[in-house]
Amino acid sequence: MIRLHIENETSPLRAVLLGTAKSCGPTPKPEEAYDPKSLEHILAGTYPKEEDMVREMDAFARVFQKYGVEVYRPEVLEDCNQIFARDIAFVIEDKLFHANILPDREREFVAIHEVLDMIAPENIIRPPAEVHIEGGDVMPWNDHIFIGTYTGADYASYITARTNKEAVAYIREMFPHKTVKSFELRKSNTDPRENALHLDCCFQPVGKDKAILHKNGFLVEEEYHYLVDFFGPENIFEIDKDEMYQMFSNVFSISPEVVVSEKSFTRLNHWLRDQGLTVEEIPYAEIAKQEGLLRCSTMPLIRERMSS
């Protein structure tokens, strides 16, 4: 059995679901793209090749093994992109939430049956149909849960709008003892430098009290300042539009002391080391072409309880 336990983004990781790039199918047609960055690479003829993405994910798996983390992988489905495990489900406390995702991605959830079969059925929760939510927008941080959303009247016209206001209300209802804070994200179907697909595309906590942040990803300036005040300006690493596009905020913490990052993120990796963190650098630039990176391709299942 797996006893789920996730309270935050950085406590020592014990078990994780890592997606797979095997048999991820042919390059999509432009009209099949889920996000503007994938579309950009489809049109440019630079969409990533399967063997390159498999190599990148294998490097990630080796880092987990180095730190003694139990790694689960989905069953490989033929011609199906199963890289982004964070989209299909996420864990808060001892509950795994089955995301209401784009309907043609439902089989990705079924493919993690090895993990699901080890979880008590009452701890697997399917939100009601009107709740649209993906794990990239959900950021548990101890007594807070940060959620990225888009509540504009034109929500339905954005394929990049993934988490709605009903989702925020639902998570509040599920976790009445926590402070649930939502953030309106900037959305674009066509310009990847003006699109925060998920909250983790413009914000992520690292270490015990630090955060990576991109101001332009937030539609409401006060909401951006809420995070600056919450972590403290001296603990914030502010990334620019191009660094957001490269997915600088989508690193992944194995513990408060260890962060996995893309090897080309020189400025960020220097800063992380200056904060006393160990940075495990791996190649992940091909996967980044699909507007997702390290956090997107993981679903943490168990992190250690931290003594307060």
Rank of each mutant, 00 (worst) to 15 (best):
214 H>N: 10
207 G>V: 04
203 F>Q: 00
79 D>A: 11
221 E>N: 13
172 R>A: 02
246 Q>Y: 09
262 E>H: 15
96 L>N: 06
140 P>C: 08
190 T>L: 14
60 F>D: 05
303 R>S: 11
173 E>M: 01
146 F>Y: 02
276 G>I: 05
219 L>H: 02
216 N>F: 10
9 E>K: 12
103 P>T: 02
241 K>A: 14
224 Y>V: 12
218 F>E: 13
217 G>N: 07
33 A>D: 12
217 G>A: 05
86 R>F: 02
119 I>S: 01
20 T>K: 07
191 D>R: 08
115 V>K: 03
288 A>C: 11
152 G>E: 08
86 R>Q: 12
216 N>K: 15
144 H>F: 14
87 D>P: 05
218 F>Y: 14
41 H>V: 08
137 D>E: 06
8 N>S: 03
274 D>L: 06
45 G>T: 12
21 A>S: 14
291 E>L: 15
291 E>R: 05
240 D>N: 15
35 D>T: 03
124 I>N: 00
147 I>H: 07
215 K>Q: 15
182 S>T: 07
200 D>M: 10
32 E>H: 12
45 G>C: 12
150 Y>W: 07
129 A>Q: 11
178 K>M: 05
11 S>N: 14
24 C>E: 10
44 A>V: 06
66 K>H: 10
291 E>P: 01
153 A>G: 05
253 S>E: 05
71 V>E: 11
59 A>M: 13
150 Y>D: 06
215 K>V: 01
307 S>C: 04
232 G>M: 11
266 T>F: 03
231 F>C: 12
234 E>F: 02
8 N>D: 13
143 D>C: 07
275 Q>K: 09
297 S>W: 01
304 E>P: 06
303 R>I: 09
306 M>T: 13
191 D>F: 04
286 E>P: 00
280 E>R: 07
96 L>M: 15
131 V>Y: 00
288 A>M: 12
120 A>T: 11
65 Q>C: 03
37 K>G: 05
296 C>R: 12
130 E>F: 07
169 A>D: 13
15 A>W: 11
289 K>H: 08
175 F>Y: 15
175 F>D: 03
107 R>A: 09
192 P>I: 11
54 V>A: 07
190 T>H: 14
210 K>A: 04
85 A>F: 00
177 H>V: 00
183 F>R: 04
264 S>G: 05
149 T>K: 15
64 F>N: 11
124 I>R: 00
31 E>Y: 14
264 S>M: 03
72 Y>I: 02
179 T>K: 14
193 R>L: 03
282 I>S: 11
244 M>D: 01
9 E>H: 07
237 F>Y: 15
304 E>D: 15
112 I>H: 09
105 R>W: 09
111 A>Y: 05
100 N>F: 08
63 V>I: 15
154 D>F: 03
276 G>E: 04
215 K>Y: 06
293 L>S: 15
170 Y>V: 00
134 E>R: 10
8 N>G: 04
67 Y>Q: 09
87 D>K: 06
49 K>L: 13
175 F>K: 04
187 K>S: 03
39 L>W: 12
99 A>L: 01
37 K>T: 09
46 T>F: 10
199 L>T: 09
195 N>I: 04
250 N>E: 07
202 C>L: 06
254 I>C: 12
212 I>Q: 04
59 A>W: 09
52 D>L: 09
300 P>I: 10
256 P>A: 03
41 H>K: 11
3 R>H: 14
14 R>G: 06
247 M>Q: 14
23 S>L: 04
13 L>R: 13
269 N>M: 05
161 A>D: 10
